[in-house]
Computed example of a mutant assay.
Amino acid sequence: MVGSSHEALHRIFQKDPALLTRAIQDVLGVPFPEPREFAGMNVDLTEIEPIERRVDTLMRADTDEGTYLIVVESQGKKDEDKRGSWPYYLSYLYAKYRCEPVLIVITQSVATARWAAEPIHLGVREFPSLTVRPLVLSPDNVPLIVDAGEAERDVPLAVLSAMTHGRGPQAGAILESLATALRTIDADSAAAFVQFVDSCLGDTQAQQMWRDLMTAMQYFWRHPLAEQVRQEGREEGIEQERASMVLRILQWRGIDVSESVRDRVTSCTDLDRLEVWAQRAVHASSAKDLFGDDV
């Protein structure tokens, strides 16, 4: 179970290493060669001295142009101590494996992104002996995917979009398009992506919207975090919580709800029917679309 946005932001690349290539090539515009194979590596870079040095994610990419070691660092805020470790990471990896290291920093903060992208110069100011130029993925350059069709064409990239932009003003549109796109991939991958996104949504309302959408689509309930939500539902009353979920989805989608519709939903005690209404709410054009042919 993913427990924090820090973990989710780099673990998505462990789940889908090919996303790394697309992020480097398409988002960052770096002509990175197409890997034949990816392999995860030990993230512990500690030597004999008692100073722990551990990267977030380390992947080996074998290409026709040679082997690259891709270091992914998730950064929530400015941290000069962490920044000071980056040259060590790259130098150590090159010295040990004689492969070209590539540093990618991913963050949800524009300010942190600008800080992380600044070159690190070590040595004489005009003639540095070592220069490190991190590649940074952030809301500044990760595409904002709010169209369901675009999300379906590249679901992992749509997940990355939701993870980096999920705290912004278009969170609702992003999450709705991603929810639709998740229907097009296998359930296990979808369930993993659901948790990555859930861990990165710092806004309480956006997170609740995401959980409502996923509950309606049943992906969310495949993971341990769902037990917490189910327990909350039991404490409040499962029928009441499910009815509230239906109305929240309509509200977040900007659909007007009349008093008669609200009364019908809140008075319903049939969990199966409420579940159907929740699924319809995700795509409904009007509140009356909830009921379909229901009498």
Score class of each variant (00 low, 15 high):
L290I: 09
L137A: 12
V2P: 03
V132I: 15
A23F: 03
I249W: 01
S161N: 06
M163Y: 03
T112W: 00
Q228F: 05
Q240I: 14
E118Q: 14
E118D: 11
D81K: 09
L225Y: 01
C268K: 03
A281F: 03
I185C: 11
G84Q: 04
P119E: 08
D79S: 13
V2T: 10
R248P: 02
Q14W: 00
A18I: 08
R242A: 15
Y94W: 11
T63G: 09
N141Q: 07
G123I: 11
M245C: 13
K78R: 14
A23V: 08
D198K: 01
R183E: 15
V146P: 00
T21Q: 11
A278F: 02
L28K: 05
P156V: 11
L201E: 06
S74Y: 02
S244Q: 10
I145G: 09
I104D: 06
D198W: 00
A171I: 02
L213Y: 12
D188I: 14
D188F: 03
K288T: 14
R211D: 04
E65H: 07
S199F: 01
E47S: 09
D154A: 13
S85Y: 03
P101Y: 04
M217Y: 00
S285M: 09
H10T: 15
R262A: 15
A39T: 11
L9T: 07
Q228K: 05
S161T: 10
P35R: 07
G168C: 06
V261E: 05
A206Q: 08
S244T: 10
I106C: 13
E80S: 15
V2S: 02
V2R: 07
G166D: 07
E118I: 08
R248S: 13
E52T: 13
R133T: 15
P169S: 15
Y88Q: 09
T112S: 12
A61Q: 07
A191Q: 08
R125G: 02
D147C: 11
I24P: 06
S109P: 05
T112K: 03
G254L: 10
A117E: 14
R60Y: 00
L45P: 06
V282H: 00
R54Q: 13
V43W: 00
G40Q: 09
V257Y: 00
L93K: 02
A151E: 07
A8K: 03
S4Y: 00
D81G: 04
G3H: 06
V71M: 05
G76R: 10
E275V: 00
L182C: 08
S258V: 12
P31R: 05
P143A: 11
N42T: 14
G237C: 12
R54I: 15
T204R: 10
G166P: 04
R183M: 12
P17S: 12
Q25A: 13
E236Q: 12
L271W: 00
Y89V: 14
